[in-house]
Design a protein around this nucleic acid. Structure first.
Lengths: 226, 226
DNA sequence: ACAGACCTTGACGCGTTCCTGACGCGGGCG
DNA sequence: CGCCCGCGTCAGGAACGCGTCAAGGTCTGT
């Protein structure tokens, strides 16, 4: 989860921002003045900072400068002032975006997403990883290992595993898997499923003849047990 | 000098942007429609793209999507439409900033500066120097050495190495590499990858027939192992 | 104009993957 | 009790992807 630092002195707006961002499952650290903001950023670095220009204790520009001295965290500025000079000052001080009050919450959150996305590009993404006691699957980087040793899966095996693992614990009909992996029109080729699940089990399950994670529900479909 | 691609159909505004940005000593490539924009971006990649949402030949969102398929270049959107839904759509399609017309030139240029600055921040996880037990790559100064001795890579080889090394340990699809290095439309030319990876391995790997760092995952893509 | 480096393109051999059919097994049903 | 359907297993042939090599074409610097 990504942590956002909100620097806003007006309690009503601070509360509104906090609630809205938490609702989108960000971790939010709300503070009310610049000194607290710099302190919070230093102790536990956030992934993005939202700062109001009109703070009681110090100018928002100073907060930006204080952060930029040692951090490249994305900064979004909030301000009631709409003058060009003010925007230029904030952006050139190191802000990444400038939003004028009043603003729409949807737009604001979209700008937060954009800023996080831009900053995250170099990050070594820990993509969706599926873990069981016996093997782990990294769907993003297409890595699979069973009891520590790397296992190689073929393209169709990956495709089939993904289609099933996407719904953990759920029962997925064979026709649905066939349509997703081989395309519409292959719903009758249940042979494929038998052959490929046999290979997948041989590579990933401890006892391929008695699968514990890639389970067949006779007559219904298949299920992945985490 | 940094090159900016301006996509704006209205001649007056296109001219005004070009003049103002050239006055700040940017190199400006002005085009009038989306097709020309994608063509220009593919032939000589810009450092930043400014795109108007209201284009004669295609929706600006399509231009953004077309660029984002293979490039992470910063994109600033211009639009006369002020609706939140429109802004969210553009930002989520991959735009970095959204400026509503009419806008002040000073603010606009400041946003250009901010976007360029953000894109320029060196990638934290993979610094400009990549090191493995057998060879070292300095992406910034385009120098490579294997076991101490200098090795020369051609421009295309560098481009391909960069595209892959940017995601260490991750699997990168062949089509993605082709689009990034040769441009969109070359996704089918898998020959290029085989030829160039053979050359790269011959120059950098200890045993080119059994590569340890530039690994190919049959049917899936390629992977760089640090 | 010439030589060299670089990029593109095609052909060939090899290994792997995918598809297909056949066989055996076990449970449900008449 | 015997039949049938669904599932797991196995093996062989076709098709595909990859590595390698070599030749032609383009561009650059001399």
């Amino acid at each position: 989860m990504q942590r956002l630092l909100i620097v806003e002195d007006e309690p009503a707006l601070r509360r509104a921002l906090t609630i809205n961002l938490r609702a989108r499952s960000y971790e939010v650290v709300p503070v009310g003045d610049g000194a607290a903001a710099l302190r919070a950023a230093a102790t536990s670095p956030p992934d993005l900072v939202v700062v109001d220009l009109g703070l009681p204790d110090m100018d928002g520009i100073e907060v930006i400068a204080g952060l930029r001295g040692w951090s490249t965290v994305p900064i979004i500025v909030l301000s009631a002032r709409d003058s060009q000079a003010e925007k230029v000052r904030a952006l050139d001080a190191g802000a990444d975006d400038y939003v004028t009050k009043p603003f729409g919450m949807d737009e604001f959150v979209a700008r937060v997403r954009a800023a996080l996305r831009r900053a995250d590009i170099p990050q070594l993404s820990t993509g969706p990883v599926v873990t069981t006691p016996e093997f782990t699957l990294d769907l993003a980087s297409k890595r699979a290992q069973r009891e520590g040793v790397e296992v190689k899966l073929t393209p169709t095996e990956w495709h089939l595993v993904e289609a099933l693992v996407r719904h953990p614990g759920m029962l997925v009909a064979g026709t649905q898997l066939l349509a997703e992996v081989w395309g519409p029109g292959f719903e009758k080729e249940t042979n494929y499923l038998r052959v490929y699940f046999a290979q997948i089990r041989r590579k990933l399950e401890a006892d391929p003849s008695q699968p514990r994670h890639f389970v067949t529900e006779p007559g219904l479909g298949y299920r992945f047990e985490p």
